[in-house]
Design a protein around this nucleic acid. Structure first.
Lengths: 193, 193
DNA sequence: CGTGTTTTGTACCGATTGGTTCCCTTTGCT
DNA sequence: AGCAAAGGGAACCAATCGGTACAAAACACG
């Protein structure tokens, strides 16, 4: 019927995700996105409506990708002890920093930023963190030490662990020294052991 | 010698702090600050050089005020059990939210924002959180259950608790539902008990 | 090989950003 | 009274913000 798109939408979205991941929602300017995605204004607006809509799609993608990866790790049956799965998640976050990636977590950055005034973003962030929390809840069920907790207590514990996770990744983004970050992970391990 | 200032510098700084607290560093525009501080561009730039310098002074003020208040609470001898002091800090943060203040913690917001690319801000944030961490460390020393920990373990535990604190306040800013926030505080209590 | 439809690139838009400059007023001190 | 120093207000600045308009280019289909 007409001229086909010369770029892959999914690929462009992936690139946009990395731009937002690094600069945050407000910190990512149109030129930043254009550069990172490798396309021009006309194409971006035709394909993604506007910056906010693009960010919402990026958030959705991040959830489907990073969050689901975390949830998968948290319900990995090849690690029988759920507490160890949770530890693996924290250690993975720390490893990211050691490997030079101190962008933190896109969701956590958005939580401190646009979530405070934009209801849509707040809702998406809340859902993403909620999914992670549920994954932790499941993992706790596979931990001998915590499986005996009643659901309310176990849920509250999952909420607390999510808070630790948000704290860790936010502090990583702030480039807090590695030793402190390592201590956090280590102490989480002690707490769950 | 010359005309004296018609506004109180300290008072203006206090007002600037609240503007930054609500909007974050990047989110606070000059007009926002001018309105909130009740002065004009000329006066602001003459007294505070520029936005960044103003923010650094605000950060310093926040440390001298909010952080020191937290540290004071954490070393309050009228509460003999240090763990209870830590709990009081978490409960205070939750109470803020219940009372309608969901601005979170200025330091935590800065951690997720400009700290990622501005070394000066990162340093100030790191120092502020460090002071709070040291306060927690001291409080743990006054907790029967934790005083026996060796210094390294106790320090690592303090680091972990700071991460929980950053997480809690960041999630508060993202307007996560009160029940979840309450669960976090409650579970911290269970953990420390 | 047109023709119609869509993408693409660019020029452009008004609004807003942080920051400067200027002039006038107000003050303190001699 | 008069001078020097500083404050206050507003006009002004270039740069950048997110977003739009439009013409040219590229493809699918008859």
């Amino acid at each position: 019927m007409a001229r086909p798109r010369s770029f892959d939408t999914d690929d462009a979205l992936e690139k946009a995700m990395h731009v937002f991941w690094q600069h945050g929602y407000e910190g990512a300017s149109l030129p930043d996105l254009l550069d990172g995605m490798g396309l021009t204004r006309g194409s971006l607006y035709k394909a993604f409506t506007d910056k906010k809509t693009l960010f919402m799609q990026v958030l959705q993608r991040y959830e489907k990708q990073a969050v689901q990866a975390g949830v998968a790790m948290l319900s990995d049956p090849s690690v029988p002890n759920g507490a160890e799965r949770i530890m693996a998640m924290f250690q993975g976050s720390y490893q990211n920093v050691v490997n030079g990636d101190d962008r933190g977590c896109l969701l956590c950055t958005a939580a401190a930023g646009p979530s405070s005034y934009d209801d849509e973003i707040a809702k998406a962030v809340s859902e993403g963190l909620g999914a992670l929390r549920d994954g932790i809840y499941v993992a706790l069920g596979a931990s001998p030490k915590h499986a005996t907790l009643n659901p309310a207590e176990r849920g509250a514990l999952a909420d607390m662990i999510i808070a630790q996770y948000v704290g860790l990744r936010t502090m990583a983004r702030a480039r807090i020294d590695h030793e402190t970050l390592h201590n956090i992970v280590r102490s989480v391990g002690v707490m769950l052991a």
